[in-house]
């Protein structure tokens, strides 16, 4: 008790200073701990977006769940997409705890998504027109997700770090699931190989955009500075993108695939990959929900949300009261 009382008596500046000392010492902040307002808001935004992205991320693969070409593949992709929904739920719970002191709930998250105030990840606005796209999402999109999420495994906010630990463990299985689909295609018929190369060409730019712009100058906004300051993440967007290249470029080439970027090479002197920048104007459009599939996928989620409102009402007992 004396500790709590003395902490309450501190000025805001002193609380902030204590807070920074804690996170710089590697301590974890818990849901009920004091935290600066912008830390809370940054986390809510980051985690709600992550949660919603997991859930919206099920939609590009949704098309291929019923269509998977064998019983084994059907079972595999069902399990994979179920995991993604599970991640979404786990993260929603983390976001809900952070929002509780503000009097906000999951309902606000959904409404913000429908209004366009809460974004879902730019990679999930892209079309997935073939079975190879389903494999590529598992292999490279989940592979990219592992890289960004690993970067936050030691996040200063304990509940998020713990959720990420579990998520990353499952993402490794997803990447293997995707890789297995990709391998079958890469070793398959001419048509299968072409289908795979097409999918890579289609997804390449989206994979570069996945990590976000190198600096806020590119698009006018980036959360990376504040998230690094608060020890939520350690590496910059560009470092993550470079890590992705280092891990996946050799693997892509080993499968006999061509990189859709002829300028791409590793510069020994600079110690980094040189590549053609994606069209960041396109990126800006995507994050305004003007991507190729943005509207369609939002519509799917919104329609199901309202169409099933009677079920949630029945469960909450509201209709009994009417």
């Amino acid at each position: 008790m004396p500790v709590v009382t003395s902490f309450r008596r501190l000025s805001e500046e002193e609380k902030y200073e204590r807070f920074m000392q804690r996170i710089e010492a590697g301590e974890k902040i818990e849901a009920d701990d004091w935290m600066p307002e912008d830390y809370r808001m940054t986390l809510i935004k980051l985690i709600a977006m992550h949660a919603i992205s997991e859930i919206m991320g099920a939609l590009p693969e949704k098309e291929w769940v019923p269509k998977a070409p064998s019983l084994r593949r059907k079972l595999g992709i069902m399990a994979k997409v179920q995991d993604e929904m599970g991640h979404g739920q786990l993260l929603l719970r983390v976001a809900e705890d952070l929002m509780a002191p503000l009097g906000k709930t999951r309902e606000e998250i959904m409404q913000d998504l429908f209004k366009g105030d809460l974004k879902f990840h730019n990679v999930f606005h892209m079309p997935a027109p073939t079975w190879a796209d389903a494999g590529l999402i598992g292999w490279l999109v989940d592979g990219a997700a592992i890289i960004t999420q690993t970067n936050m495994l030691d996040a200063s906010y304990g509940p998020y770090a713990r959720a990420l630990k579990r998520i990353c463990a499952e993402e490794v299985f997803h990447a293997q699931h995707g890789e297995s689909i990709i391998l079958a295609l890469a070793e398959g018929t001419k048509e299968q190989k072409e289908m795979l190369q097409d999918a890579l060409n289609r997804w390449w730019e989206a994979l570069l955009m996945f990590f976000g712009p190198a600096s806020s100058e590119t698009t006018g906004a980036s959360k990376q500075d504040i998230t690094i300051k608060y020890r939520i993440r350690t590496k910059t967007n560009e470092q993550l993108r470079q890590d992705f290249f280092t891990k996946y470029v050799p693997r892509i080439l080993a499968l006999g695939l061509k990189l859709p970027d002829e300028t791409m090479h590793f510069d020994e002197k600079q110690g980094k990959w040189i590549y053609k920048q994606p069209d960041w104007n396109k990126f800006k459009e995507i994050i305004r929900n003007n991507g190729p599939k943005s509207k369609e996928r939002l519509r799917l989620r919104e329609l199901s949300y309202y169409h099933n409102a009677w079920v949630r009402e029945a469960l909450s007992g509201q209709s009994a009261a009417v």
């Binding site: 179920q82 929904m85 739920q89 799917l300 099933n308």
Partner: peptide, 26 residues
Amino acid sequence: GSEWLGLAPHIEEDIAFSSINQDTMG
């Protein structure tokens, strides 16, 4: 059941339902 994916009344049910569909496909 798999056509319902992403469309269930709430996220928790989406997870439970897809788990059941998976078992049933198994």
